[in-house]
């Protein structure tokens, strides 16, 4: 079985937010919840970079560790999912998650938390794959259809990669061989451009990159 992972290539992300929109549309996520978001650091400054963030499907997930009702489980594909019929909406997973993935629709009096919602790696939930109940509660189950998460599938610059960890790291490794870990190495960092001679990009390797 695969070990599913996301990887966002900061050198390619152009902050178009298409992944956010695609996810919201595909999974029909609750109002006020964004399973994926694009965070831009140093916006408008030299060295600006954007990264698309969602649940990273940790091998040792903090959310699962602190959950008082043990509603999380990891699928055979390494995807961390949760059972909304077990979740009580306490918010502890939100405190523990490093990526801010778990979110809560406002429900009931005083805007108390409803059932937690987070990225499912487009793998649905514990309901029957492809059933109406599954789609209503968890969104699409593209993995069951042999497809990868829509956010990564429709990323226009292929910054966001989703799939088996070995394949993802292989693609990224080829990119690093071609261009270095960061294009800032090329001397296009305008902050430091006067200090170093611009280098021509290294010779391209055929194939992915």
């Amino acid at each position: 079985m695969a070990n599913m992972k996301f990887y966002c290539d900061a050198e390619r992300c152009i902050e178009c937010n298409a992944c956010v929109t695609a996810c919201k549309n595909e999974n029909e996520v609750p109002w006020g919840v964004n399973r994926r978001r694009v965070v831009t650091i140093k916006d408008g400054e030299p060295g600006e970079r954007s990264l698309s963030v969602a649940c990273m499907h940790c091998a040792d997930a903090p959310c699962a560790a602190v959950c008082p009702v043990d509603c999380f489980y990891t699928t055979e594909d390494g995807v961390v999912l949760h059972d909304k019929e077990i979740c009580i909406g306490c918010g502890y997973c939100f405190y523990a998650c490093p990526f801010g993935a778990p979110q809560f629709p406002k429900a009931g009096a005083f805007a108390s938390r409803g059932k937690m919602d987070k990225c499912t790696f487009c793998a649905g939930g514990p309901k029957d794959p492809g059933s109406a109940d599954e789609h209503r509660m968890y969104g699409s189950n593209r993995l069951a259809e042999g497809k990868l998460p829509l956010c990564a599938e429709m990323c226009s610059t292929k910054a966001l990669l989703a799939g088996d960890a070995n394949v993802i790291s292989d693609i990224y490794r080829k990119r690093v061989i071609n261009r270095g870990a960061s294009v800032l190495d090329w001397g296009v960092n305008y902050d430091k451009a006067s200090l170093r001679a611009p280098q021509a990009p290294k010779g391209k390797v055929s194939g992915e990159g």
Binding site: V20, G32, N34, E45
Partner: peptide, 11 residues
Amino acid sequence: NASTQVHNVDA
């Protein structure tokens, strides 16, 4: 200095 288009707590 980080920003995002998503308006949630700590987003």
